[in-house]
Amino acid sequence: MNTISMRDIFFDAVYSEAKKDRNIIIISADMGAPALDKFRRDLKKQFINVGIAEENMVTVASGLALAGKKVFIYAIMPFVTSRCYEMIKVDLSLMNLPVTVVGVGAGFSYDDSGPTHHSTEDMAIMRTLPNMTVLSPSDIFMTARFAKMACGMAGPSYVRLDREVLPTIYDKDDDFSSGLSRLKSGKDLMIISTGNMVHIALDAAKKLSMHSIACGVIDLYKVKPINSALLLKNIAGIKRVVTLEEHLISGGLGSAIAEVLADNNRMVPLKRLAVPDKYYYAYGGRKNIQTLCRLDAKSVTKEVLDWLGEERKT
């Protein structure tokens, strides 16, 4: 069973690259991690702590990148995205600089910390930025690969890391260059998901199979740019599509998929399962919040069955 967090494997991978390339810099907004302790100790000159000042973190990163550095900036997700969004727009996206925004705490990862720490808007705002690559890993092997990929990118990128230690899905040497993986086939229905919710999608697909529904699962880990051609190929002949994400209903993965379908004249019935248009002060763990949002595997299964039932009636 996996015990490694996405954050630690990510920074471990950056550490390995940074040992070989002194132009790789990490900036933290007063956030720590065991893997960062090593970085701070061994690669002192490549580590900067700007304090709790995310706007300055972005502008400093931009200046470093202009001077030829490859920079990673790191904080809890809402603070490194929406808090300093306009800095990201002007200083990273507009100037197209190689800075990787590393957010930890996708969706309700910081469960008991409440909506200030929940990240349920980030995909919407980050994927709308030109030049930006948006990566949303679903396990640690993919995360490690993304760290390496990010080191070689010429433009800005955003990596959406979960805080929870998730089971693995992939193998260490799997290739993630295509932007998405079909994890399961099924002709009745395809669930397209990302990040932690891929695990719930797999669970729901299993539950649906008990209702004789052949449900497939796609892990869409590159949210921008979406490999539309491959996505459309993977849903060819599928009767219905469901999107599943721990992100607000507006602007995230579901919206992105709806855009791909509409823009390609693919009029397949689509159901978007996401966080309803509200904030959640709810305690007792992430699973509890997911249940309230109807994003746990049982609720997802029920939502899909209800939807199919409605479809059959009409």
Binding site: K45, N56, T59, V60, G63, L64, A65, A67, V90
Partner: peptide, 15 residues
């Protein structure tokens, strides 16, 4: 924006 960008450039020069 400019002062922080200047900081990054000046820091890179030091590095």
């Amino acid at each position: 924006h400019g002062l922080g960008i200047a900081a990054g450039l000046a820091l890179a020069a030091k590095m």
